[in-house]
């Protein structure tokens, strides 16, 4: 149990990144991760280590929590300009880290279902099988979906650069 708590604590940042991409807001995303912590601690036996590592499993719990929050959210509760604001670091604000900033902005311009694929693969380093598991999609569709998402992100980046 203590080991599981430690592991979950370490997964917090990555889960928060995913939740932020889904919810478009860092505070809501932190709530989603916090809720997921609680859900898991209340029923730790729901995780079966024989079925695979904790990371993709926990990410799925967090993602389900996010989808739940989105469903409950009033449509007016999310103004477009508020979409994706993971917070700006001082380096980014000073323009020192423009590439990071550009990536964040480009991610904000593509649909959430494309964003999450990219984040799961390129930021959280999940395999295609694990991504399929988290998203509940067929493993055979991950490559094409991911590729389309990357192309979309690349276009958003290129448009942004112009």
């Amino acid at each position: 149990m203590t080991i599981m708590r430690q592991e979950l604590t370490q997964l917090g940042g990555g889960a928060h990144a995913l939740a932020t991409q889904l919810l478009g807001n860092a505070d809501d995303a932190a709530d989603a991760v916090h809720d997921a912590f609680e859900a898991v601690l209340r029923r730790p036996q729901a995780y079966d280590s024989r079925k695979g590592p904790l990371k993709p499993w926990f990410l799925r719990v967090v993602r389900n929590r996010c989808l739940d929050m989105i469903r409950r959210r009033r449509p007016s509760a999310m103004p477009v300009e508020e979409l994706i604001d993971p917070g700006t670091t001082p380096e980014e604000a000073l323009g020192v880290d423009q590439r990071r900033m550009a990536i964040k902005q480009a991610l904000a311009m593509i649909p959430a279902e494309k964003r999450e694929l990219i984040v799961l693969r390129d930021y959280l380093d999940l395999s295609y099988a694990q991504i399929a598991d988290v998203l509940g999609i067929a493993q055979g569709t991950v490559m094409s979906r991911l590729h389309r998402s990357r192309i979309a992100l690349k276009e958003a980046l290129d448009n942004d650069a112009q």
Binding site: G13, H16, T20, I103, V119, L153
Partner: peptide, 21 residues
């Protein structure tokens, strides 16, 4: 692109925040 995404920072909350939560 893949390298840039993996080098980006998509969460500004440090591990201490998660430990506290």
């Amino acid at each position: 692109l893949r390298r840039d995404v993996s080098n980006s920072r998509l969460s500004e909350y440090g591990e201490d925040v998660w430990r506290e939560k």
